[in-house]
Design a protein around this nucleic acid. Structure first.
Length: 302
DNA sequence: ATCCAGGAACTGT
DNA sequence: ACAGTTCATGGA
């Protein structure tokens, strides 16, 4: 991580293959999003670090991301954690050069990487948020998923009001672990999804599931096997989490219906894709599955 | 109205 | 292992 501390602000040096505004375009895909705010080419988000709430404001300079603090400048220790958070959130550790070189060999893939040049695989660093968001999104359309997510956050998340704006945190697993199924059903979770999410919150509360422990496994297949043992987590969800929370380049939610639609448009077929067809097309995506999936998702929001 | 949506568990074979 | 069924509800 390459960051510069200016005390009242911090800056992060970004790779050449980075475009802040492409990332903003993805983050701006739903107007129901409560976890960040975008206006005038800047991104505002609240974080909770070391038990304190911090509001951060991100803007782009020529080759850096500048982070300022609209409410209160945090300590150096927290500023460093914020820099780490941004580094992870925007997947700045990944080197996109080989991916782009690979794409350049094909006219088809080149159009995709040129159209969204500099888009990074935006992460969901919070493990509970990543799993819960995946479960909410199972088998319902994204618009409805965002509606449920917004209700969930407003009901159980912390907020901070600043001027006319209100900033929200995703609910903590501690808070969700003490809920009843009925508490989530009233937000229109299905009974099963309510069970899954509360169960996962309880697992995390008891220390049976943690990002740290999974990071220590340090292996895609091991983490996936562990996630698959959790009720409510199937192959799609496991790969979704491995992609958005753990940044494994080979993570590939193969059954994703959005991916199928995007891919059908991309290759120009007019029938619904089967998983077998997707697998066949994806044979030469080795190591870039996550990024190609993400870029194809991006192509759905225009 | 009807089909479908960023699936997963369960059941029967 | 694999295919078919059930869950469940808003969006378009």
């Amino acid at each position: 991580m390459n960051w510069i501390d200016h005390k009242l602000s911090i800056e992060i040096a970004v790779p050449r293959e980075f475009n802040f505004f492409e990332c903003l375009a993805f983050l701006n895909r739903s107007d129901k999003e409560l976890l960040h705010q975008i206006k005038d080419d800047c991104l505002i988000k609240m974080l909770k670090i070391d038990d304190s709430l911090v509001l951060i404001k991100l803007t782009a300079t020529r080759d850096r991301i500048r982070i300022t603090f609209p409410i209160k400048t945090p300590s150096l220790r927290i500023r460093e954690q914020i820099a780490n958070y941004i580094w992870e959130w925007f997947d700045l550790e990944s080197d996109l050069t080989p991916f782009y070189q690979w794409a350049d060999q094909s006219e088809l893939y080149r159009t995709l990487t040129q159209r969204y040049y500099g888009l990074r695989l935006i992460g969901i660093p919070n493990l509970f948020e990543a799993i819960t968001w995946a479960i909410i999104g199972q088998q319902i359309n994204l618009t409805f998923a965002y509606t449920i997510k917004a209700r969930f956050i407003k009901q159980f998340g912390e907020n901070l009001k600043f001027g006319s704006d209100c900033f929200w945190l995703f609910p903590s697993y501690e808070r969700i672990s003490v809920l009843n199924i009925a508490d989530l059903k009233q937000l229109q979770f299905t009974t099963r999804k309510a069970e899954y999410v509360i169960n996962i919150a309880r697992m995390m509360d008891k220390g049976m599931l943690s990002k740290t422990a999974l990071l220590n496994m340090d292996d895609y297949d091991q983490i996936k096997a562990f996630l698959l043992n959790i009720k409510g987590v199937g192959a799609w969800t496991a790969d979704y989490v491995l992609m958005r929370c753990f940044h494994y380049p080979q993570a590939f939610p193969i059954a994703d219906i959005g991916l199928h639609h995007a891919l059908a448009m991309f290759v120009g077929t007019n029938h619904k894709m089967t998983t077998e067809e997707v697998l066949k097309i994806a044979l030469d995506w080795q190591g870039y599955q996550g990024y190609i999936t993400f870029y194809l998702w991006r192509s759905l929001y225009n």
